[in-house]
């Protein structure tokens, strides 16, 4: 038996590696300068889908919603081994919070159809919300397994999965189709295949816009997002009130005296 998977992927700003020239003189971040990367846990999700395909056969389709530039990400999915990729892009999707995003993604998944598993990273590093996966599953009325660490078994119409829980793990069996969100410990993504890089270098992914999807525009993008950003404050670094300690024997000795006198130690 073969299994078809859909993988939800996202291009994100590399918030973990903010280097010198990304910081503006006023101490805030120049977002345009941050490099865009493959959200790490989404890449692991794709890897798991590809492992299922390697073992059982079937088709892997990667989907992203984002600006036209996100096509770069889909080419990376093809380089790793995805069979098909879809770019969901439209100005009317812009400004979507997780609810509006999951609404559009569920419509895309409905359109693709014929799937056994949907994979997604647990969360994206630009928001860390971990909401889009479960919200999409709910819209599709599918079961979900979040924090997936290992696929233990696939049997006809069911899947056995090990997932992380508070202080340990549990093993669940779910009927297919199911949506799985994947933690980074689950696997290490495979490198790009040279042959596939050559084959797909100039590939232009299929695009879906509002016209191709059965969507209610009131539920997409900013209008479809119940949460709104009311205020944003850039974090400007400022010097607080502190005592400088010389990193010498005397300096550190004095510090320890002070802490002992304050009854912090002992």
């Amino acid at each position: 038996m073969t299994y078809n998977s859909i993988v939800l992927v996202k291009q994100v700003p590399d918030t973990a590696n903010i280097s010198g020239d990304v910081m503006k003189p006023d101490g805030t971040v120049n977002r345009a300068k941050l490099p865009a990367i493959f959200n790490p846990e989404d890449k692991v999700a794709l890897e798991l889908a590809l492992q299922v395909k390697d073992q059982y056969g079937g088709k892997v389709t990667a989907v992203t919603m984002g600006p036209p530039k996100a096509a770069e990400l889909l080419k990376e999915c093809l380089y790793m081994g995805a069979d098909d990729v879809i770019l969901v892009t439209d100005r009317q999707f812009a400004g979507a919070d997780t609810l509006a995003t999951s609404y559009v993604l569920s419509k895309v998944i409905d359109k693709i159809g014929n799937y056994d598993m949907i994979f997604a990273g647990r969360q994206a590093i630009d928001g860390d919300t971990a909401q889009v996966g479960p919200q999409t599953a709910e819209k599709l009325k599918l079961p979900q397994i979040t924090y997936t660490e290992k696929i233990l078994e696939l049997n006809d119409d069911s899947i056995k999965v090990q997932r992380l829980i508070d202080g340990g793990c549990e093993v669940l069996v779910s009927k297919l189709p199911v949506l799985l969100t994947v933690v980074k410990e689950a696997s290490v993504p495979r490198p790009f295949r040279a042959k596939r890089v050559m084959a797909y270098k100039n590939f232009i992914p299929q695009q879906l816009t509002t016209e191709d999807l059965d969507v209610d525009l009131e539920r997409c993008g900013l209008p479809g997002s119940p949460t709104k950003v009311h205020k944003i404050e850039s974090v400007v670094l400022s010097a607080g009130d502190h005592v400088s300690i010389e990193p010498t024997k005397e300096g550190l000795g004095l510090l320890i005296d002070t802490l002992m006198n304050d009854h912090i130690f002992g």
Binding site: T15, V29, R31, I125, G127, T227, K228, H230, S234, V235
Partner: peptide, 17 residues
């Protein structure tokens, strides 16, 4: 909540729900 790699602090509201 902090957002965007901690470089901003965002105040989110849910005005119309």
């Amino acid at each position: 909540r902090p957002a965007f790699g901690g470089n901003i602090v965002a105040t989110i509201i849910t005005p119309d729900n």
